[in-house]
């Protein structure tokens, strides 16, 4: 289980990284912490001709702030986010999710950008960023652009990122003081990929009332009807899952996950309803 031969390029800047990727003509692969790519290389499942190391690109660790948003570079590690290295604009949401990712030794190297670019549906950041209605910053040879998370991810391990593009950062909304969140993950093992994730954000001051179902082996889904139902009631009503909310959620899960079996739907229904209940009791 040793990696196949590849060239290594340590990028010094975003422009340098983009040039190295373009030069690879589709056979170059960007690597951040390497916590996803490393094992795939060792298993020889991935066989890029060139690996472009992003860990030393200063722009990818930027932190910028506007009145209502925070922009972060893609290279912050899970552990840094867990430890509060970024300004807490999500009332503890991001650090809490970060703490639940894999294990400390992985969190010390793995990055939020690497995780999102890899786009495993069971990973935490994809679902979290969808819940926050975050936007993605992408650097292409012809400039910087933005994407929204639900169109960025096409499916498992599949994104709209081109061979010559870089996921460079995220635009996160600042939650209001009254903004609440809840995140319920069902895992068989500590640090294991989730079997189901329910995530809820309730911040009417910012116009963000969002209920998301994740770890569904494809792009996580925003439960629009459940979100609307939650928006019409109070978060306290979610605590005991008011019957109206419960019915809407059940219908929506059954419909959106119709091509999965009953066990799968049950698991996800439970994750979301527990996240709602936790939101209500916060």
């Amino acid at each position: 289980m040793k990696a196949p031969v590849f060239d290594y390029h340590r990028a010094s800047s975003v422009q340098d990284a983009l040039a190295a990727l373009a030069d690879g003509r589709g056979d170059a692969k960007a690597m951040a912490g390497g916590c996803s790519l490393g094992p795939m290389l060792n298993l020889r499942l991935a066989r890029p001709a060139r690996v472009v190391d992003l860990r030393h690109v200063p722009e990818l660790r930027r932190v910028e702030e506007t009145e209502d948003r925070l922009v972060i570079g893609a290279l912050w590690t899970h552990a840094e986010i867990e430890d509060g290295a970024l300004p807490d604009i999500t009332n503890g949401f991001l650090p809490s999710v970060a703490h639940g990712i894999a294990y400390r030794a992985v969190r010390n190297r793995g990055t939020i950008g690497g995780s999102v670019a890899h786009a495993d549906p069971a990973a935490d950041w994809i679902t979290t960023l969808l819940t926050l209605d975050a936007r993605l910053l992408i650097h292409a040879p012809d400039g910087e652009r933005q994407a929204s998370i639900d169109t960025f991810m096409l499916g498992g391990y599949s994104t709209e990122l081109g061979d010559d593009e870089l996921l460079s950062g995220f635009i996160l909304p600042k939650l209001s003081g009254r903004g609440r969140w809840a995140y319920h993950k069902i895992c068989r093992k500590t640090g294991e990929f989730a079997k189901a994730i329910g995530a809820v954000l309730h911040d009417p001051d910012r116009g963000l009332v969002r209920v998301v179902c994740g770890a569904i082996e494809r792009t996580p889904i925003l439960l629009e009807e459940t979100s609307a139902a939650l928006g019409r009631s109070s978060p306290e009503a979610a605590a005991d899952l008011a019957p109206v909310l419960k019915g809407v959620l059940k219908d929506e899960i059954d419909r959106r996950l119709a091509d999965h079996d009953a066990v799968f739907r049950q698991m996800h229904h439970t994750a979301v309803s527990r996240a709602l209940a936790e939101l209500g009791s916060k």
Binding site: P39, L43, R188, K189, T190, G191, E192, F193
Partner: peptide, 28 residues
Amino acid sequence: LFEESPYDDLGQPLASTLLDYLLPGPTE
């Protein structure tokens, strides 16, 4: 509770990593 090496009908083992085959850890 955890350990299993499933095979498909072609005799292909479906657990080739420790993410497929779960070993109990300290919290389990």
